[in-house]
């Protein structure tokens, strides 16, 4: 995947994509993220797991400023993010996000959902945008549904549209916030297959998920979080098979 911003393309491959430094966040008095620090390299597949309420979603949503945090710094390709316009530009040029509830725009067709950003923000011509999006939809196997509205699709199909919509903006990093949690069991696989394909292309991915099978199969590293803290980070065989902490083992016994 090529990107439009030149200064990013020049950097070397092993560079840090996201650097999280001592992130702290409170909801009122409730301390939801406690000194979270993490480095994610370019091309790395990072799976974040942990019990509900452990701050996984808050963490991933802090990365693209959907959530504000009180302390700490998030840097993307070496650029520290703040609330200014420049940071917003970096976020939107480098990061795409897929939500648990798809969040497709119900009044637009599948094709329009995906081309919206291209035609209005990139000022791409409608024909070029359509062509590019149709290629993406074809890749995730729903090109035949391009003229349908989201309400006419199954959950799995909707989530694949959502992934295509993010990919259309050519991000360098994809954030997945529990992409399969709202799906019927028989549709989980079709979404995971798309994500596995995406992982093979060398995309940097951060996934909050409960799919341990997926984590074992594609993750480079697994982060285990509990109570707003990162407890363990490591390759899946280490964290998922041989956890060092009792909290991790207890969680794994519940999910596996």
């Amino acid at each position: 995947m090529t990107t439009s911003s030149g200064n990013l393309a020049q950097k070397s491959v092993t560079e840090t994509a996201i650097k999280i430094d001592n992130l702290n966040k409170w909801y009122g008095d409730h301390h939801v993220l406690k000194d979270v620090s993490l480095d994610i390299s370019e091309g790395e597949i990072m799976v974040v797991c942990g019990p509900s309420g452990s701050g996984k979603s808050t963490l991933i949503r802090s990365l693209n400023h959907l959530e504000e945090y009180q302390e700490g710094v998030v840097s993307v390709f070496g650029q520290p993010l703040s609330r200014d316009r420049q940071s917003h530009k970096i976020i939107h040029q480098t990061m795409g996000m897929v939500f648990q509830n798809f969040n497709l725009f119900p009044h637009l067709t599948v094709l329009q959902n995906c081309t919206l950003g291209l035609t209005w923000l990139r000022k791409m011509s409608e024909r070029d945008a359509d062509k590019m999006v149709m290629r993406l939809l074809d890749r995730v196997g729903i090109a035949h549904l391009a003229t349908r509205y989201p309400g006419q699709l199954s959950g799995g199909q909707q989530q694949r549209v959502a992934i295509s919509r993010s990919l259309a903006m050519e991000p360098k990093i994809m954030l997945f916030d529990e992409p399969t949690s709202a799906l019927d069991p028989e549709m989980v696989k079709e979404v995971l297959d798309v994500m596995i394909d995406l992982a093979k292309t060398g995309m940097t991915m951060v996934c909050v998920t409960h799919e341990m099978q997926f984590a074992r199969q594609v993750a480079d590293r697994v982060v285990f979080m509990a109570d707003g803290e990162i407890i363990e980070v490591g390759p899946p065989e280490q964290v998922l098979v041989n956890p060092q902490w009792d909290r991790t083992r207890e969680f794994l016994q519940h999910v596996l």
């Binding site: 969040n103 725009f105 950003g117 993010s166 903006m169």
Partner: peptide, 24 residues
């Protein structure tokens, strides 16, 4: 979620309102 989806695509306030929120 509609606001969030628009924000992650990079749509600004005006675009979000005119293209996403007001039509609905």
């Amino acid at each position: 979620g509609q606001y969030e989806a628009a924000a992650t695509l990079g749509l600004g306030y005006l675009h979000t309102m005119v293209l996403i929120i007001l039509p609905q």
